[in-house]
Simulated scan of single mutants.
Amino acid sequence: MAQIPPQMPHSCTEDLPHVDPAALAAMIDPAKTALVVIDIQVDFAAPHGLLGGYGVDLSSADAAIDNCEKLVAAARGAGATVALMRVVTSAETDSRALKTLMVRRGQPGGEAICRAEDGGADYYRIFPQPGDIEIAKLLYDGFHGTDFDAQLRARGIETLVICGLSTDCCVDQTARSAFHHDYDVFLVSDASAAYEPGLHESSLSAMEKNCVLLTTTGAVENAWRV
Rank of each mutant, 00 (worst) to 15 (best):
A61K: 00
G164W: 03
L50Q: 10
T174W: 09
V212H: 02
G164C: 09
Y54E: 14
G218Q: 13
C68P: 00
H48Q: 15
G142M: 07
V19T: 14
A191W: 02
S189P: 03
I133M: 11
S177R: 05
D149L: 11
A194V: 05
G164V: 03
D94M: 13
A154E: 15
I65F: 00
P6W: 01
A121V: 07
A150H: 13
V161Q: 11
L213Q: 15
R225Q: 12
W224I: 01
G109Y: 04
P47I: 09
R104D: 10
L138F: 06
I40K: 02
S166Y: 08
C114W: 01
K137W: 08
M1Y: 12
S60A: 15
E196Q: 13
G218C: 11
D94W: 14
D39A: 05
L98E: 04
K137R: 14
D15R: 07
E92Y: 06
T81W: 01
A154S: 15
R176D: 07
H180W: 09
G55H: 08
L101E: 08
A61V: 14
H200L: 05
S95V: 02
H200E: 04
D141Y: 02
V19R: 03
D20E: 14
P47E: 11
A80S: 11
F143V: 05
T215L: 03
T100I: 12
S95Y: 03
P197F: 08
S177C: 06
S60Q: 14
F148S: 06
L16V: 04
A112P: 00
T174R: 04
F143R: 01
L50Y: 12
I38R: 04
Y124R: 04
W224T: 00
F143P: 00
A26I: 07
R96A: 12
A116F: 08
K32H: 15
G77M: 02
G52C: 10
L213W: 11
V72Q: 03
A191Q: 06
V36K: 06
F127T: 10
E111V: 07
A64Y: 01
D122E: 14
N210Q: 14
S11G: 05
I126E: 01
A22F: 04
G49T: 05
V82W: 01
L50D: 08
A46D: 07
R153H: 13
Q107D: 08
P17L: 05
D184F: 07
V226C: 06
T216A: 10
Q3K: 13
M27F: 02
K99L: 13
T13V: 15
S205K: 09
I4P: 02
F186I: 11
R76F: 02
A26T: 13
D132T: 06
I28H: 01
V72K: 00
F127W: 09
T93Q: 10
P5A: 12
S202T: 14
L214T: 07
G77W: 01
E117H: 12
A175Y: 04
Y195K: 09
P6K: 03
N222K: 14
D149V: 09
A26F: 08
V87D: 05
T13W: 04
E92P: 02
A154K: 15
G218M: 10
L214I: 10
